[in-house]
Design a protein around this nucleic acid. Structure first.
Lengths: 195, 195
DNA sequence: CTTTAAGTCGAGGGATGGCCTCAGGTTAAC
DNA sequence: GTTAACCTGAGGCCATCCCTCGACTTAAAG
């Protein structure tokens, strides 16, 4: 049934995937497919031969990225230092966003089934870092989601500066020395009014 | 030369401006003009009669907003408490972003001459708050710009939660009690690598 | 109540940009 | 040499937004 591809066909397919990785990283999941074909140096018809639906191409490209992301979360959970593990995971996530707009859209702005897995791990990362007394006690995983969203805009508009903003965010997450819960003693207020 | 508008024409003009405020707040500066006319209950031709160029309509709508924004910065500078003034200005800015996408684009993502004025005031707000010992010494106005950009994404994706993110970031900006510059003593590291 | 200039209407023509197909030419593989 | 797999890209389709213009309506002046 599934005969192997002819050699040139395989080469072209690979070129298309490579081109799509670049183009989608730059322009996001909605990037026009003509741009992908052009980047690969192939005709649009060839792209459609290999990937009849946009989703076929997206899947091919993104599955690996999402998997690697989940692995990062897994490794963070195994880190000796809970805080260190959490921070590294967040930093990796933010860096991936800065490099890859498609990743940002898929992993952080769209909501996705695969994310359920990552989300579970993030919840455990949070709990673990709080138990270690390193992460503010009034934080939960939704706060981290907000931070990651926030980073995505910074990475987009000022790609050279996301790290600067990132370190501020980390400072916001870090538990203070005992007896110093912020200069005015206020916890994070939960919002009551709609946006 | 400039005879006054006929009464119906004036009414329609006002309706167009009101509609444009709504539509641009929801959809941004690029919102299709048909949507504006439809919201006003008028035909597209009428819109073009009153505002032959898109810029005419944008100016009419946004000038006031930018002015009001600058006034907020001015009032913040006159606040008794430097920290309080700074925080209120930031909060107002973030709230305007949450309510008005056109404002976000014009004031925070595009760069604009009017912004020079606001920027100068923000620099003074920073200096003043630092002199008062309330704002971290390693912050400058670009950090605040990044923060405000970041908020724009949060406000877009999770409009009900920007305040939560906001308060966390404010905690990160606040100077710690003397002798407690963060749990591990690290200042915000200046990035050296590109994004 | 006319007159008329100002104003309104909205179908429709134009530009753009992305999607996808398919008939005709090319090439790997046997 | 044969053949099925493959590649090509012009071109048709569609959607969206742009803006115009000739026919119609109406405020307001006389």
């Amino acid at each position: 049934m599934d005969r192997p591809l002819r050699r040139d066909a395989q080469r072209n397919r690979d070129a298309l995937v490579a081109a799509a990785k670049e183009v989608l990283a730059e322009r996001g999941l909605q990037a026009p497919l003509d741009a992908v074909a052009k980047r690969a140096g192939l005709a649009i018809g060839t792209l459609y031969r290999h990937f009849p639906e946009r989703g076929d191409l997206i899947d091919e490209i993104m599955d690996g990225k999402v998997t690697r992301w989940a692995e990062l979360a897994g490794k963070a959970l195994e880190a000796e230092d809970a805080w260190e593990g959490l921070v590294r995971f967040l930093e990796h996530t933010c860096e991936m966003q800065a490099r890859d707009r498609a990743f940002t859209e898929l992993a952080c702005l769209v909501h996705l089934e695969d994310k359920a897995e990552v989300r579970g791990m993030v919840e455990r990362l949070v709990e673990r870092a709080q138990r270690a007394g390193a992460l503010r006690a009034d934080i939960d995983h939704t706060d981290l989601a907000l931070f990651v969203m926030a980073n995505s805009r910074v990475a987009e508009v000022a790609p050279g500066q996301w790290r600067r903003h990132f370190h501020l965010m980390i400072d916001a997450l870090r538990a203070r020395a005992a007896g110093d819960p912020g200069a005015d003693g206020a916890a994070v207020r939960r919002p009551t009014s709609p946006g």
